[in-house]
């Protein structure tokens, strides 16, 4: 079973994402901001990370740049999941090392096809 870290400051979004990911046979861990996510990764690197952009304490993009410098931090497949939907943000995310990008709102189909795209499903 693959593991996915869900990083979002919204409890509702985390719950919806967790339900979908569990249906896709992932074990899930949750974090409310980039800093908590980084602690989770240092503890145990997940296979996948579903990552919000705008969060208090540490943003998703700051987390991603730090993660990719960590030992083993190049391994997780990172899928952004954010309301930021312009080409500048998408390009910035890819340059920082994101593997895929989901623009909110999302549904099960979108998560499933995006995760399939990067070989997670």
């Amino acid at each position: 079973m693959k593991s996915c870290l869900i990083v979002d400051d919204s409890r509702v979004i985390r719950k919806v994402a967790r339900q979908i990911l569990e249906e896709l046979h992932f074990t899930t861990v949750e974090a409310v901001d980039g800093k908590e996510a980084l602690d989770c990764c240092r503890d145990s690197m997940p296979d996948a990370i579903l990552l919000d952009w705008n969060m208090p304490v540490m943003s998703g993009i700051d987390f991603l740049r730090k993660l990719r410098q960590e030992q083993g931090g190049e391994l997780p497949v990172v899928v952004f999941c954010t309301t930021e939907n312009d080409i500048e943000h998408i390009t910035e995310a890819i340059q920082a090392g994101a593997n895929e990008y989901i623009m909110k709102p999302f549904d099960r189909d979108i998560i499933e096809t995006k995760f399939t795209e990067v070989g997670l499903v």
Binding site: I87, I90, T91, E100, D107, D109, I110
Partner: peptide, 18 residues
Amino acid sequence: FEVQRGLPIQMLVKYFKQ
């Protein structure tokens, strides 16, 4: 919604205009 169903993000960046 439509551009997120099956379209890899690199393809979106490369071949689509917002």
